[in-house]
Amino acid sequence: MTDRPTLEDIRRAPKVLLHDHLDGGVRPQTVVDLARAGGYRNLPAEDAEELRAWFTSAADSGSLERYLETFSHTVGVMQSEDALRRVAYECAEDLAADGVVYAEVRFAPELHTQTGLPLEKIVEAVVTGFAEGGREHGIRVGTLVTAMRHQARSMEIAELAVRYRDAGVVGFDIAGAEAGYPPTRHLDAFEYLQRENAHFTIHAGEGFGLPSIWQAIQWCGADRLGHGVRIVDDITDRDTDRPQLGRLAAYVRDKRIPLEMCPTSNLQTGAARSIAEHPIGLLRSLYFRVTVNTDNRLMSGTTLSEEFAKLVGAFDYDWDDLRWFTVNAMKSAFIGFDERLELINGVIKPGFDRLKWHGDRPLA
């Protein structure tokens, strides 16, 4: 018998993060500093704590326009190589301080060209920042380059992913509004990535439903699903002890397609009504390949440890559950098999075992 994990102890656990946006996790003080240095004059507040409160309020406002405005400010100050490198370095530092040992952090290079920076310089600045932060703080951070689904640069960004895959880029993603912008609009990019043996994930099943998930998997060949919460729409009798999986849900589970779930963010976007009602509870009980993530740490006012702690409170999860989520994430990462196995057997499992047991006694 073990005690329930506390937030303090969860922070000490070796964790893995697969879905985190670089421009959604900038430190408020860094936003203020970069705005002053770069002449950005549109911030809603110039004090870091006031700005932090504004970001959280805007994200929780229920207004899509105000929520999207938050990213205009973080992206607005990330328009130089120095700014991008600093934000990436601090991201690695912050994740390491939260006990994350491996992370894949995504960003859209096309959003950082306002001052004329070429895409290559943008990617190199971010990869460098992650590498420097990783070396100094004991974390490995892989970069995911993202194309915006409402734009027409996905092939260009996919080529970047392949060009820099031996220099820190581990995969490709598309993001943005799902409704009206199906992933099949970018089929040429996905087919190119498959031919190049490259990894990619697709935001699907968050703001839209099953068709988005179906297209991402069956047309585009996604390795993982960004969010994927709406897969529950293909599960009936959910409130019984015998839930029935439809063909798509069964396929996702059978093929062990990872779901990059972000509980707090999913509440903010309306994909779930409360943590206790979040589909992650059902999907975990049915043994889908569920992972736990942060999405946008600044806008959601969260960390990966806090996301785990909320799930512990809602579903009474124990250390075995948290280790299960973490191993799922490490199995689903876009680095090589040997590297994943080394982290699972050499870092994650021993780390959780130390927290679960102190000698022959349960953790107090």
Rank of each mutant, 00 (worst) to 15 (best):
128 T>W: 07
30 T>G: 02
229 V>K: 06
192 Y>G: 02
274 S>M: 07
124 E>I: 11
303 T>L: 00
97 A>Y: 04
185 R>Y: 09
268 Q>R: 15
259 L>I: 01
290 V>M: 08
280 I>G: 06
23 D>R: 08
70 T>C: 15
350 P>Q: 02
338 D>Y: 06
188 D>Y: 02
318 D>K: 04
110 E>Y: 02
230 R>H: 13
85 R>E: 14
271 A>W: 00
122 I>L: 14
120 E>Q: 14
132 E>V: 10
205 G>E: 05
257 I>E: 13
4 R>C: 12
168 G>A: 08
41 R>E: 14
147 A>T: 02
79 Q>F: 07
86 R>Q: 10
66 R>V: 06
310 K>Y: 01
154 S>F: 03
357 W>H: 05
75 V>T: 13
360 D>Y: 12
220 C>A: 15
102 Y>M: 05
303 T>M: 05
68 L>E: 00
363 L>D: 11
183 P>G: 15
114 Q>P: 05
94 D>A: 15
290 V>A: 13
208 F>N: 14
321 D>A: 10
120 E>F: 03
177 A>T: 10
340 R>H: 01
184 T>V: 13
81 E>I: 11
300 S>T: 15
237 D>A: 14
16 V>P: 05
57 S>T: 07
57 S>V: 00
43 L>F: 12
195 R>W: 00
73 H>T: 04
92 A>E: 03
281 G>N: 01
243 P>N: 09
299 M>L: 13
302 T>K: 00
174 I>M: 13
270 G>C: 01
88 A>M: 08
63 S>Y: 04
228 G>V: 04
205 G>S: 08
340 R>S: 08
87 V>N: 04
305 S>R: 03
73 H>P: 00
121 K>C: 09
294 T>A: 12
323 R>T: 01
179 A>N: 14
44 P>L: 12
162 V>H: 08
235 I>Q: 03
209 G>F: 13
117 L>I: 03
112 H>K: 11
87 V>H: 01
201 T>Q: 11
260 E>F: 02
156 E>M: 07
288 F>Q: 10
299 M>F: 05
337 F>P: 12
3 D>Q: 11
12 R>W: 03
